[in-house]
Simulated assay, not measured.
Amino acid sequence: MAEKIILGLCTSGSRLKIAVRAGQRYFQAQKKVFNQEKFIFSLVKSQLKKAGALLRGVKTVCAARGPGRFTGIRISLTLAGALKAMACAKVYTATLFEILALQAFESAHFRSWAAARTVRLVVLLHAFKDEYFCQAFLTSGLRRPRPEAEPGWLKADEMKKLLAGLKGESYFIADAEESPDIYSLAPAGAALAPASLSKIVPSYIIKAALVYKNRTLKPLYLKPAKYEMEARKHAES
């Protein structure tokens, strides 16, 4: 029986990230490029080749739907939508918050730290300049991290105050590959994910999408694009 081929896509950040799952085997790659739409097919094909598969053999597509760059997010979602329409591929999506939360949740580092305690996972992402996103997840007694609240979008000083005021014990995981200083937002002495987890691991694009089973292709922007903000100001004036 032929192995089921699943494709994972993330174009939300500065690095194009691709994963292919063939049966239980994972193949993954990333490339730091600006015009990711020019490189996505070659990187997808290279990972499919390693798996002994072709694009037409992809049965499921898993895509990161943000938050991130306005145009970047749409690259993955557009390809996922095209494969759904033309090849009848199933499509599942996950946010970067969900991907990072699951990476931490399934790690030995988090499990060892959390033990049997009631703790939360806090995911941090860089938005723009001195602005950041965060979302907290509940973990105790659950099979997967569950969002505690909607994502927040704050300036650095406001984010530090918010995180310092969290009740109970929290474990922080952030995309430090995109923003190396991001853990400075966490309170002093806080439990932090190691460097190996502090980035979007391509295989977890697939793992998180299959765990959360989101079917929406709607991008998660959080931070409005410039034209959206200008249109809002115009409408309110």
Rank of each mutant, 00 (worst) to 15 (best):
E131I: 10
E158V: 08
K218E: 15
S42F: 08
E177R: 03
I40V: 11
A82K: 05
A127H: 04
M229Q: 14
A231I: 12
E169T: 14
A19L: 10
Q47P: 00
T11Q: 05
T95W: 11
I173K: 00
R56A: 12
S198H: 05
R120K: 14
Q135Y: 09
L166S: 05
D157C: 04
V44W: 04
C88P: 01
V119M: 14
K49P: 03
D157M: 07
K129H: 13
P194Q: 03
P67C: 04
T71V: 08
L222S: 08
Y132C: 06
Q103V: 10
A2H: 09
K50Y: 05
L124R: 01
A29V: 06
P145N: 05
S12N: 08
V119C: 15
L55P: 00
A127L: 13
K199L: 15
T118N: 15
D175E: 02
G23R: 00
E158Q: 10
A190I: 09
K49V: 08
T95F: 12
I73T: 02
L138G: 10
P224H: 03
S196K: 06
Y221R: 00
Q135P: 07
A193W: 02
E148F: 14
K84N: 11
V123F: 09
G189M: 12
K45A: 14
L162C: 06
K17C: 14
G57H: 01
L222W: 08
Q36G: 06
S140K: 14
Y171M: 12
A114R: 09
L102C: 09
G189K: 03
A225S: 14
I6T: 06
A149E: 14
P67R: 04
E228P: 02
Y204H: 07
G141S: 08
P224E: 08
L43A: 08
I99W: 02
Y26G: 05
A116D: 15
S107Q: 11
R25T: 12
L124T: 07
S42R: 01
Q47V: 03
M159R: 03
